[in-house]
Write a protein that binds this DNA or RNA. Structure first.
Lengths: 174, 174
DNA sequence: AGCGAATTGTTCGACCCCGAACTAACATGA
DNA sequence: TCATGTTAGTTCGGGGTCGAACAATTCGCT
């Protein structure tokens, strides 16, 4: 390998042995996709950044914050400021939970539901740009593979679930 | 949809309409994989977090910081503190570039090369855990799809490259 | 040769996420 | 009942990335 400073400096660098690593591609793809979406949709405050959270809240109204945090892959503590902002923007409400005075039932407001609908349309356009040129059959494989990766990584955090991961593709937790 | 606070609180939440979104799966998979790797390998300081960078430096010795930043998907300014730490840990050197007094030629030290080799082995084990249960044929499709996604997203940042992205799967830049 | 534009590395302030610690409330068991 | 442990939400400090600005240097054009 010749020294990079000898070559034409305007080229893309070779990625080294890690270029075929899926973990590495995963990282690059996610960062690029995340940025592109935020550049695409403006004028909604910080809702686009937390679209995944809003979708989960919309699909599971009344969930508590701990469940939401786990569902979106964040820590409980990180969710606090996020919900503070979404609440300030009247997108989300924190009601007292009926059965447990510690927890709060998180729901979309009417305005939040409208914002979610509009952002979902943007996300679909983004998804189309993301997957442009990839055949539908490959997309199905991609989805399944990503699901399996998520499952594999979560199994490392909770060793008790390893046996289940060995056996089956089931998404249920013991 | 019944209220979540009525149901058994110990279940995994449904992901809503976005559950099939590749952008969303991508995000969850990347975050989980990133965390799992950092938990796996300890005792190397902050080198594991920047393994991708080290691999690129190893494969392209003497590159300047701007090229490295673009290659790993970071900003020039973010790379400064990272290289400061890696230099402090004697993993990386910043030599003056021979042909341009503005830029610096980044290289691995001898110690850095050894660390890279050991971390690469850890990364291979991580990759195996990551892809466990996914057939090799699907992994090939996964790799190709991720490459295409990265290409698609970078095309959005540099509209001049759109024509090329429309035409072909070539990785070359105009 | 010379002047404006672009590039390189850097610093700085803002923002976001994490982990640890804390309080309030629930759960369990002697 | 009451002590112990666990869980929900929160606060706070640390660290990482970004964007904007800046000095030094190089490029491009005349």
């Amino acid at each position: 390998m010749q020294d990079a400073s000898d070559r034409d400096g305007a080229e893309t660098l070779t990625a080294g042995d890690g270029e075929s690593q899926i973990a590495y591609k995963l990282r690059l793809a996610q960062i690029a996709a995340y940025r592109a979406f935020e550049e695409r949709v403006t004028g909604y405050g910080k809702a686009p950044r937390y679209l995944g959270l809003l979708m989960i809240i919309g699909a599971n109204p009344g969930s508590n914050q701990s469940s939401l945090a786990e569902a979106v892959g964040l820590r409980r503590s990180s969710l606090v400021a996020i919900l503070d902002q979404l609440e300030r923007d009247r997108i989300v409400r924190r009601d007292p939970a009926p059965d447990d005075r510690r927890s709060k039932a998180v729901r979309l407001t009417g305005h939040g539901s409208r914002v979610l609908k509009e952002l979902t349309e943007e996300a679909e356009a983004h998804e189309a740009a993301l997957t442009r040129g990839i055949p539908e059959a490959d997309l199905a494989i991609l989805r399944a593979a990503l699901d399996r990766i998520i499952l594999n990584m979560r199994a490392l955090d909770m060793p008790a679930a390893n046996a289940a991961a060995d056996r089956t593709d089931s998404l249920s937790r013991s």
